[in-house]
């Protein structure tokens, strides 16, 4: 009886916590910190359906047929299973508590230092062709990275003075003078985040910014080795933007 009672209400409580947190993130404009915007509608609709089920459950009397299930497992196994379910529920409550305790946030720049820069989403081809014909005023860091990776003409790159906002990744080869200003590109959720960025030359930058901090950089592209770097004319620390990812 007690097991059936707990099993019934634990599901309702956990659903309310998970779906409630999802809806709260959506209403506060922070759902984008965790998943791609293309999934917003689906995620919120399913969370709303889950909440509707929770409300209906509270309104109608509990169906008790399963209270009479035969006890097919030895008591020890049931105890162990109960403990496991308790631990698992505890993890979910802990995640909810952490979500409440910490401000929802993007992945930090330190995770990017362990991943290849510009390995994802830098496909060139049609993307680069479309970008070459577009107005660069609205270009994201990913757009510039695509253009540079695709070998954009010097006329395209030298004629602009872009202003980029991203987090700092120290250049492992020339840490004193260059860094990458980067963002994470995601295709589904934060788990598939890959850093994309543009190399910036600014000698002595480490006295002004920490690796992983958010900066706004402005400058002109200049050729270097077999690529391009942004020769910074100004660079200021800024707060993390409301939409930190690019898509």
């Amino acid at each position: 009886m007690r097991d059936a009672f707990l099993k019934y209400w634990r599901g309702i409580l956990l659903t309310a916590l998970g779906a409630g947190a999802t809806i709260w993130l959506a209403l506060s404009g922070q759902l984008g910190l965790y998943i791609h915007p293309r999934y917003f509608a689906f995620t919120v609709v399913m969370a709303a359906i889950a909440v509707a089920f929770v409300v209906v459950t509270l309104l109608i009397p509990r169906q008790r047929d399963h209270d009479h299930e035969e006890p097919v497992e030895p008591r020890r196994t049931r105890r162990r299973r109960g403990r496991l379910a308790g631990v698992a529920s505890g993890v979910l409550v802990l995640l909810t508590a952490v979500l409440l305790a910490l401000p929802p946030t993007t992945l930090t720049g330190s995770l990017a230092s362990g991943r290849d820069l510009n390995a994802a989403g830098i496909t060139g081809g049609e993307d680069a062709l479309q970008l070459a014909q577009a107005d660069p005023a609205g270009f994201t860091i990913k757009d510039w990275a695509v253009l540079i990776a695709d070998g954009a003409s010097s006329r395209t790159l030298e004629s602009v003075e872009p202003q980029l906002v991203g987090f700092v990744i120290a250049d492992p080869d020339q840490p004193e003078s260059t860094f990458a200003v980067a963002r994470y590109v995601i295709t589904c959720c934060a788990v598939d985040a890959q850093p994309v960025g543009v190399t910036v030359r600014l000698p002595g930058w480490q006295e002004r910014f920490a690796s992983g901090s958010w900066v706004q950089v402005q400058g002109r592209f200049v050729p270097q080795d077999d690529g391009w770097v942004l020769e910074a004319s100004s660079a200021e620390p800024v707060d993390q933007p409301a939409e930190p990812y690019v898509y």
Binding site: I35, F42, T43, C189
Partner: peptide, 9 residues
Amino acid sequence: ISVFIESLP
């Protein structure tokens, strides 16, 4: 949290 929110729906 990201995997959880992505998987929950």
